[in-house]
Design a protein around this nucleic acid. Structure first.
Length: 489
DNA sequence: TTTTGAGTTGTTCGA
DNA sequence: GTCGAACAACTCAAA
């Protein structure tokens, strides 16, 4: 047989986006199976078609791209970096390399999906083969529907339906070797300046981005802390959460690997089934968020329940600033906001408390908080961020009822009962006895003095009073409820 | 079509 | 200190 100038020798472009891993990567597996040379590329596109990444997210991306490049080099390949408009850069790369195939793991966020769809149509019309796989979710968003063919709006039935339909995909190992053309130009990652300088605010970021870090975080979690997950996950001072969220966001581990690890730990007797399934349930919440954003794209910047967009939000720049800086005078809130700023992450329980405080105690639009989280979180994920903020606001699908207003004092006493969390992140209160730690303004003067706390001087007095703020929020939220009832009359 | 049961994470009040 | 009820009905999903 004469091969001649076989078209299969033209390279395949493997466009990495939120799938920065070599194992369990469907697009990579398919690309390797073609036997053709592969051009792995990441395009940094901070343009207008999708929401630009925030600063903490870019910090993570920087390290993750380095890890991916190193893993590819171990296999004789390397990561090609380009910056600019995705379509322009991919067309340029295809022209340079003669590639006529583009393989991707699909992105499900509506804006990214629309961009990809436009790109695929345009390229296909020019004879380019464009293929996509699902590499980021247990089930592709849009594929789980109720008996009437409608999207679920309640978590529990969604979860049951998803887990009933889902079957774990087989493992695929990353290829041992990848052939990549030598002469393809790449940007210099250092020149992208993704790591902060002047000042470097990331010195407290305690993370190992990349696939190896993801696998080790998962196995560490599954072999220990997961056994106490259902209860322990609520206590921010205990190291019981998986801390897998940024790895999942960037696709450094497939979510099905996390589910599999949980179930294997349960089968091996390392964790009770109920504890492992609680963790699986959190993975399914991630699915639910993606599913909701897919079906209801407007929720990225509007309430799922439209009447909530009419809430009489307060314009309060001083309150917002105090919240972002961790200077509200409520220790559990301040601890959370400082953990976020310092480490790029916040414990889930505390995320609810600080979100409830911003929305309900300060009556500030949830979108302000969502924006701040977007910029500060290494795990910033559009679907999850928006869904969770709307859950707290009460404006989302299957959301918290409007009269549920977290009491930051009670939450602190209940979930940070030994004060470990507050003392770590609000050191100026560290010497206060447990009894007063979550409400320092109630402490007798001599207790404050002995602990070195000077309210209004080295730690703020509460910027709002809980009872009054709670009543104000209830009134405002009732007015929303009235809007809805009036409209229905 | 109608009915029925259920619904992530809370707080406050009064007995 | 502990407990149940109220908060406020509503929407969803499935039988």
């Amino acid at each position: 047989m004469i091969r001649g100038d076989d078209v299969t020798d033209k390279p395949v472009i493997l466009w990495f986006r939120q799938d920065l891993r070599l194992h369990d990567n469907p697009a990579l597996t398919a690309a390797a199976a073609t036997g053709a040379p592969i051009v792995p590329v990441y395009v940094l596109d901070q343009g207008s078609r999708v929401r630009p990444r925030g600063a903490a997210s870019l910090w993570w991306l920087d390290k993750s791209l380095r890890a991916l490049d190193a893993a590819l080099r171990d296999r004789g390949s390397r990561l090609i970096l380009r910056r600019g408009d995705s379509e322009t850069e991919l067309r340029r790369l295809m022209a340079e390399t003669g590639a006529d195939r583009l393989y991707i793991n699909r992105q499900w966020e509506p804006d990214a999906a629309a961009r990809d769809s436009d790109l695929a149509h345009a390229l296909k019309a020019e004879g380019v083969e464009v293929k996509g796989w699902n590499g980021s979710n247990l089930m592709p968003p849009g594929s789980v529907l109720n008996g009437s063919g409608e999207p679920y709006k309640v978590f529990t039935p969604f979860s049951k339906a998803l887990l009933a339909q889902w079957t774990p995909p087989p493992h695929t190992l990353g290829p041992r070797a990848l052939l990549t053309p030598e002469d393809v130009a790449s940007d210099d990652l250092d020149a992208w300046g993704l790591h902060p300088a002047r000042p470097d605010w990331s010195t407290g970021f305690d993370w190992t981005p990349g696939e190896a870090g993801a696998i080790s975080a998962l196995s560490r979690f599954a072999s220990g802390p997961m056994a106490d997950y259902a209860d322990g996950r609520d206590h921010p001072g205990r190291p019981v959460t998986s801390r897998l969220s940024p790895y999942l966001h960037f696709g450094e581990v497939a979510p099905w690997r996390a589910v599999e690890a949980a179930r294997k730990a349960a089968a091996d007797g390392k964790a009770p089934v109920a504890q492992a399934e609680k963790f699986v349930s959190e993975i399914v919440w991630r699915e639910f968020s993606a599913h909701l954003l897919h079906h209801f794209p407007h929720i990225s910047d509007h309430a799922f329940r439209p009447e909530y967009d009419a809430l009489p939000w307060r314009d309060d720049p001083k309150g917002l600033k105090a919240w972002t800086r961790g200077l509200t005078g409520y220790p559990i809130v301040d601890a959370g906001m400082r953990q976020l700023w310092t480490t790029g992450w916040m414990h889930n329980r505390v995320r609810m408390v600080v979100a409830s405080f911003l929305i309900k105690h300060l009556l500030i639009d949830w979108r302000e908080g969502e924006k701040w989280f977007w910029d500060c979180l290494v795990d910033a994920d559009l679907a999850s961020n928006v869904q969770n903020w709307q859950w707290v606001a009460g404006s989302g699908a299957d959301a918290s009822p409007y009269f549920r207003i977290f009491n930051p004092i009670t939450q602190g006493r209940k979930f940070d009962e030994d004060g470990r969390y507050v003392r770590r992140w609000v050191p100026e209160l560290a010497r206060l006895p447990d009894r007063w730690l979550h409400a320092p303004w109630e402490a007798p003067p001599e207790v404050l003095r002995d602990a070195g706390v000077r309210l209004g001087s080295n730690y703020p007095r509460p910027i709002v009073e809980h009872d009054a703020a709670r009543k104000r929020a209830l009134d405002a939220l009732k007015s929303v409820d009235k809007v809805r009832r009036d409209r229905e009359d």
